[in-house]
Computed example of a mutant assay.
Amino acid sequence: MGYQVEKSDAEWREQLSPAEYDVLRNAGTERPFVGEYTDTKTTGVYKCRACQAELFRSDTKFDSHCGWPSFFAPLAEDRVEYLVDKSMGTVRTEVRCGNCGSHLGHVFEGEGYGTPTDQRYCINSISLTLEPDAS
């Protein structure tokens, strides 16, 4: 698939820290409850750490107590793409940045959270950069 932002593996490795590269480019997962945005309440826009595309607003973030930042919807459906993920012995829906193809996390449905969409976008903090709203 062609993305608006495309870089070679060497360019991604130069731009990203080893931990960022593992998650964003190799679909790794950061450990639960250690990410910088897990409990953040700051108002603003969450962007892809790799390409700075705007992905989620803080007003869609909610406390799921799962160990990773959770959102009930992206800014728009074209901001993310979905892939079937059959790793880990189960079928899940992987969420990637629609602008550069970087791994963000997974989306789950029907878990009973009181959100407008009944979805939980479980996103790695290390995949995001928060741009706070101007005061």
Rank of each mutant, 00 (worst) to 15 (best):
M1Y: 15
M1I: 13
Y3T: 04
Y3K: 04
V5S: 05
V5M: 05
E6P: 08
E6A: 11
S8V: 05
D9N: 03
E11H: 00
E11Q: 00
E11N: 03
W12M: 01
R13P: 02
R13I: 00
R13V: 02
P18N: 07
A19R: 13
A19K: 10
E20N: 12
D22M: 13
D22V: 00
D22K: 09
L24V: 01
N26S: 09
N26Y: 05
N26F: 02
A27S: 10
G28W: 07
G28Y: 07
R31L: 14
R31W: 04
F33W: 04
V34H: 09
G35E: 12
E36W: 15
Y37A: 10
Y37I: 02
D39G: 06
D39W: 14
K41S: 12
T42A: 05
T42R: 08
T43A: 13
T43R: 14
T43G: 11
Y46H: 00
K47I: 02
C48E: 08
R49A: 11
A50C: 00
A50S: 07
A50F: 03
C51V: 02
A53S: 06
E54L: 06
E54F: 02
E54D: 11
E54I: 04
L55N: 04
F56D: 00
R57S: 02
R57M: 08
D59N: 10
T60S: 06
K61R: 08
D63Q: 12
D63F: 09
D63T: 12
D63A: 06
S64D: 15
H65Y: 11
H65D: 12
H65G: 14
C66F: 07
P69C: 04
P69V: 01
P69K: 01
S70C: 10
S70G: 11
F71E: 10
F72L: 09
A73N: 02
A73W: 08
L75Q: 04
A76C: 05
A76E: 12
A76N: 09
A76W: 03
E77I: 06
E77D: 02
D78H: 03
V80S: 09
L83H: 13
V84N: 13
V84P: 11
V84Y: 14
K86N: 11
M88A: 13
M88I: 12
M88Q: 13
M88P: 13
M88S: 15
G89I: 02
T90F: 15
R96I: 03
R96T: 04
G98S: 07
N99I: 11
C100I: 03
C100K: 07
S102G: 11
H103G: 02
G105P: 12
H106K: 10
F108D: 14
E109I: 10
E109G: 15
G110H: 15
E111F: 14
Y113W: 14
Y113S: 08
G114H: 15
G114K: 14
T115C: 13
P116T: 07
T117N: 10
R120A: 13
Y121E: 11
Y121V: 01
C122I: 07
I123P: 02
N124V: 00
S125R: 01
I126A: 07
S127A: 08
S127D: 09
S127T: 06
L128Y: 04
L128H: 03
T129K: 11
T129R: 10
T129C: 03
L130H: 06
L130C: 05
L130A: 03
L130Q: 03
E131L: 12
E131N: 06
E131G: 02
S135D: 12
S135Y: 15
S135Q: 12
